[in-house]
Amino acid sequence: EIASQALGRALFAREVSAYWLRRSWDYIRSEPLDWIRLMGRKWLIVWNVRELEDADDFYLYQKWSWLLRGLGWANHFGLLVPLAAMGLVLTWRQWRELWLLYALLLSFALTVALFYVFGRHRLAMVPALALFAGASLSQFGPLFRKREVRQSLIAAAALLLTIAMVYWPVMGERTPSAAGLNNLGIVLAQQGRIEMALRSYRLALQAEPRFIAAHYNLATLLARHGKIDEAKLLLHEAIKINPGYAMAHNKLGEITAAQGDLEVAVVHFREAVGIQPQLAEARRNLEKAIALRNKKP
């Protein structure tokens, strides 16, 4: 959508990819230090204890599943990665036999950091991490009993330093995300559980006040149930956050048209079409509003 707006026409998938690739290279060339800082932050996120959600939110599902709540206390990168770091130290003397595992783990981590960090994207790292974590559990005890103090201290230091890294608060609390709460609100609204849907949208905005999708969905549901003033306020807030949000302009046009203010509705519909010409709903609304306005005496 953003690429299409920038180029002023509908794009094929390969054209969208080419657009963002050009934008990425332009950014790296113009802001190299900022890009390095960004990559450093993304590298920390790759190993962080918090799962970065995509369409599915693990922390939201935990509220509905006793099994996930039970597993969640230990089944995460906050335990796996430190143990794997200690295992890497303890198995370093076997690097000739294990170099392929090192290469796989590093390549997976770099790929995730370079592109987009999601919990599901870093899942490919888990098998290699689990092998090294298992090595730490099997080798540290015998090593300690043999009183190999130096190697034991190095392994323990690796464990503690990695714990500090993975628990570094680079991503916020391990709580349901705005996107997850917004998606839950959509499902609840479809099921007719309106009050629960409204609460979920409001929680999404508490979690991320600038999350415009939650503004839009909450406004749509409020307008559908007669709370017009609050709905319009939310849509104006969404447009203030992102003036190029065509759907918010279109929804404001629909609300004002339903109130009989066709002049203002036409302005909003035109704004929506100007921002996103391929938004068919806004085009239809604009044509209808103009026709109704012209029929007025």
Rank of each mutant, 00 (worst) to 15 (best):
D56R: 13
D57K: 04
L33H: 10
L67D: 04
E31K: 12
Y27M: 12
W66E: 09
L33G: 12
R37K: 11
Y59R: 08
I28M: 09
W25D: 14
L44A: 03
A55V: 13
G40M: 01
I45S: 01
W35T: 15
R23S: 12
P32N: 06
W47M: 05
M39I: 04
D26S: 15
L44V: 09
Y61C: 03
Y27K: 10
W25N: 11
D34G: 11
S30A: 15
R29G: 09
Q62H: 05
K42V: 07
W25Q: 15
N48M: 00
V49E: 07
P32I: 05
R41N: 03
L60V: 02
L33K: 11
R23V: 14
L21Y: 09
R29L: 14
P32K: 06
K63M: 10
W66R: 10
W43F: 05
L52I: 14
L68P: 00
R69M: 06
L67F: 06
D56G: 06
I36C: 06
W20Q: 11
R50Y: 10
R37C: 04
L68V: 02
W25P: 07
L60K: 05
N48I: 02
W25T: 15
R23A: 15
W64M: 03
I28F: 12
A18S: 15
E51Q: 12
G70M: 01
E31N: 14
Y61N: 08
V49C: 06
W43E: 00
Q62A: 05
K63E: 12
R69D: 02
R23T: 11
V46S: 00
S65H: 04
L67H: 05
L68N: 03
F58S: 08
L44C: 03
G70S: 01
L52Y: 06
L44I: 05
N48K: 05
D34T: 13
G40Q: 00
P32R: 04
E51D: 12
L52T: 07
Y27N: 12
L52A: 09
W35C: 10
R22H: 14
Y19W: 10
R37H: 00
R29H: 11
L44Q: 09
D34N: 11
E31S: 14
N48Q: 07
S24V: 08
W43V: 03
S24N: 09
S65L: 01
L67S: 07
L44H: 02
R50L: 07
R50W: 08
L38H: 11
A55E: 14
Y61T: 04
S30T: 15
L33C: 09
I45E: 04
D34R: 15
R69P: 01
I45F: 04
Q62P: 01
D26N: 14
Y27A: 13
R29K: 14
Y19K: 12
W35A: 13
A55D: 14
R37I: 02
A18H: 10
I28K: 13
V46H: 01
I45K: 04
K63R: 13
L52F: 08
S24T: 15
E51W: 12
D54M: 04
W35N: 07
W20L: 07
N48G: 04
Q62K: 11
R50T: 09
E51Y: 13
D57N: 02
W35E: 07
D57M: 00
W64R: 09
L68H: 02
L38T: 09
G40K: 03
R41E: 01
R22C: 11
